[in-house]
Amino acid sequence: MSREFTPKVVTANDLIEGDAIWLTEDDGWTRDMAQAELIEDEAHGQLRLLHALSQHSVAVGAYLADAQLGECGPQPVHFREIFRTRGPSNHAHGKQESA
């Protein structure tokens, strides 16, 4: 039996700025994970990843990351992905700056 599919988002880094971005339902990219498309089907996830990987001029290194539905939208599960929504812990730089 294959493992049960857990919800995912497609994420990558922006080509110019290098910061974390997430794929939205309408094929755009957002800097706010809560706006991302939450993927609940494995096959659909593969299609979305393929789409993201073809976006050479916007996104670098796209991959599927575990996510869960929060109050405002998808939220990270793993601590690495939490850091990516926030920025480093030693300086108030990155996304937390504008939050």
Partner: peptide, 13 residues
Amino acid sequence: RLMNGLYLQLHAY
């Protein structure tokens, strides 16, 4: 880019 010391990290280059 790696030949020129440019990496891509978690939040930025």
